[in-house]
Computed example of a mutant assay.
Amino acid sequence: MAGNPGDPVLASRDGRVVLVSSALPHYGTMVVVKHDDTFITAYAHLGKVAVNENDEVRQGQAIAEIGPGGPGRPRLHFEIRERGVAVDPEPYLNGRAR
């Protein structure tokens, strides 16, 4: 997802932060939120992070900022996983799926 460095990254749903890490260089700093036994979301290429592991977050809460990304390419990597399988986020983002 396109964006500018420093733009807020908002939690897509209520949940609990299960990972804040920079261990995967390809993703930069990332935050993973577990929403329930079915869904998790991952947010990567982050700059400043505003949450810690085990924090409870609310939908719409700022959890981080978009980082600088690669050379001239600031962006947010956003991923939805349903039962561990990555799914197309578009139907969730536009309200067609819940």
Results as ranks from 00 to 15, higher is better:
Asp7Tyr: 08
Asp7Ala: 15
Asp7Gly: 12
Pro8Arg: 13
Pro8Gln: 10
Val9Arg: 05
Leu10Ile: 03
Leu10Glu: 04
Ala11Pro: 01
Ala11Lys: 01
Ser12His: 04
Arg13Asp: 02
Asp14Pro: 04
Gly15Arg: 10
Gly15Gln: 08
Arg16Ala: 10
Arg16Trp: 12
Arg16Leu: 14
Val17Pro: 01
Val17Glu: 02
Val17Trp: 05
Val18His: 12
Leu19Cys: 04
Leu19Asp: 12
Val20Tyr: 03
Ser22Met: 04
Ser22Leu: 02
Ser22Asn: 15
Ser22Gln: 13
Ala23His: 11
Ala23Gly: 12
Leu24Phe: 11
Pro25Glu: 06
Pro25Val: 07
His26Glu: 14
His26Val: 14
Gly28Ser: 10
Gly28Gln: 09
Thr29Cys: 02
Thr29Asn: 13
Met30Val: 05
Val31Trp: 06
Val32Cys: 01
Val32Gln: 00
Val33Trp: 06
Val33Ser: 00
Val33Leu: 09
His35Asn: 00
Thr38Cys: 02
Thr38Asp: 14
Phe39Cys: 10
Phe39Asp: 02
Phe39Ala: 07
Ile40Arg: 10
Ile40Lys: 07
Thr41Arg: 09
Thr41Lys: 09
Thr41Tyr: 07
Ala42Ser: 08
Ala42Gln: 03
Tyr43Pro: 01
Ala44His: 09
Leu46Thr: 00
Leu46His: 04
Gly47Glu: 04
Lys48Thr: 08
Lys48Ala: 13
Lys48Met: 11
Ala50Leu: 12
Val51Tyr: 02
Val51Phe: 08
Val51Ala: 04
Val51Glu: 00
Val51Leu: 06
Glu53Met: 07
Glu53Leu: 00
Glu53Asp: 03
Glu53Arg: 15
Glu53Lys: 15
Asn54Glu: 15
Asn54Gly: 00
Asp55Met: 09
Asp55Cys: 12
Asp55Asn: 11
Asp55Trp: 06
Glu56Met: 09
Glu56Gly: 03
Glu56Lys: 15
Glu56Trp: 12
Val57Ser: 06
Val57Asp: 00
Val57Met: 04
Arg58Tyr: 08
Arg58Gln: 12
Gln59Phe: 05
Gln59Gly: 01
Gly60Cys: 06
Gly60Tyr: 02
Ala62Cys: 08
Ile63Met: 07
Ala64Thr: 09
Glu65Pro: 05
Glu65Trp: 08
Ile66Pro: 09
Ile66Met: 11
Gly67Ile: 05
Pro68Cys: 01
Pro68Ser: 13
Gly69Pro: 09
Pro71Thr: 14
Gly72Asn: 15
Gly72Tyr: 12
Gly72Trp: 11
Arg73Thr: 11
Pro74Phe: 09
Pro74His: 10
Leu76Ala: 05
His77Ser: 10
Phe78Ser: 08
Phe78Trp: 12
Glu79Cys: 06
Ile80Leu: 14
Ile80Glu: 00
Ile80Arg: 01
Arg81Tyr: 02
Glu82Cys: 03
Arg83Val: 00
Arg83Ser: 13
Val85Phe: 11
Ala86Val: 11
Val87Pro: 05
Val87Cys: 06
Asp88Leu: 07
Asp88His: 08
Pro89Gly: 13
Pro89Tyr: 11
Glu90Lys: 13
Pro91Thr: 05
Pro91Trp: 06
Leu93Lys: 03
Leu93Asp: 00
Asn94Gly: 07
Asn94Gln: 07
Asn94Ile: 11
